[in-house]
Design a protein around this nucleic acid. Sequence first.
DNA 1: AGGGATGCCATGGGAATTCATGGGACGCAA
DNA 2: TTGCGTCCCATGAATTCCCATGGCATCCCT
Lengths: 169, 169
Amino acid sequence: MARRFRGSEEVKVDAKGRVSIPAKFRRVFEASDPDWQAGKRAQLVIVYGTRDWNWLQLFTIEAMEEIEDGIARMPRGSAARNLLENIYQGHADEAEIDGDGRLVLPQKLREKIGLTDSAFFISAGDSLKVWTPEAYAEEERALEARVPELEPGADPLSLLAPAAAKDEG
Amino acid sequence: MARRFRGSEEVKVDAKGRVSIPAKFRRVFEASDPDWQAGKRAQLVIVYGTRDWNWLQLFTIEAMEEIEDGIARMPRGSAARNLLENIYQGHADEAEIDGDGRLVLPQKLREKIGLTDSAFFISAGDSLKVWTPEAYAEEERALEARVPELEPGADPLSLLAPAAAKDEG
DNA sequence: AGGGATGCCATGGGAATTCATGGGACGCAA
DNA sequence: TTGCGTCCCATGAATTCCCATGGCATCCCT
């Protein structure tokens, strides 16, 4: 089964903060949880990050282990390591997908990103980001604005070229 | 059950100095107290450290045993050993979580870190740090300021890359 | 090819339980 | 006797558990 997320999805958030994890994403969480087996609940980690994050980031167990290993290889006490520990360990929660395929987002986290009745999931490699649909629409506009060299209508893959073509004969 | 803390939480401090230990942290203290069993009170150690600490650090019993073993392996009488003993044994108290899931912070300790009506808990591996919310906000700003190479809006995980990305296949 | 039967999926809701928090009463010590 | 710490009880809110439903896609049998 795939170990990476692909695609995006919008789902309802009910009064209890439950969000149904779209099946295609759920499979990835299951496949990337070393302890998971059919019938059991897949574990995952919700990173809520520092005060300016207006999204949540859901990591598979394996992805989080990689991050933790990476952090562990950094010099103990270094500023960068402390910062990463602060985010990925200090501002993260363990969670699991319930028997109905849903994830319960605690009220605190819903409030942090302003989540009320709908949530937008979008793949980000080995993690899944959760936004309010409005916040994501905004983010998408901002994303484009951050790359002014891409003319409207141009093929985004043109951005790949400068990096790859250089050394070729 | 998990042996390591993850996440952060803000709780009320009442007039008697009681702070509710958030359930997810309480479980770690229970799991890491060799003598604990359902219904009993989990033991822990409060390290308040030297004069300049403006936080308290709560250690599980197991974590504290590891520290003590480490200290015991150091040359008796060495300056480093004396320093560690001073902090982790000389400036530490034993404590327990009461029947309602709360920890009572003695007035002395509350005063030391300026705790009045709210406390901020944040995970630090196998210990939990306790700050005033204000002091922690300050600390977090300082953490970020120490990593100027991280552009606002950049993925913090990019800090991991320099160490790991180059030789990867 | 039709037509149900089956099963997964997203969603909803009630009841039970846990959680964070507040308060009264008692005892001990300065 | 005034404050500080401990024990026990109370309560509203948040969270978990369990069960229910309608939609949609798939499978299988005829």
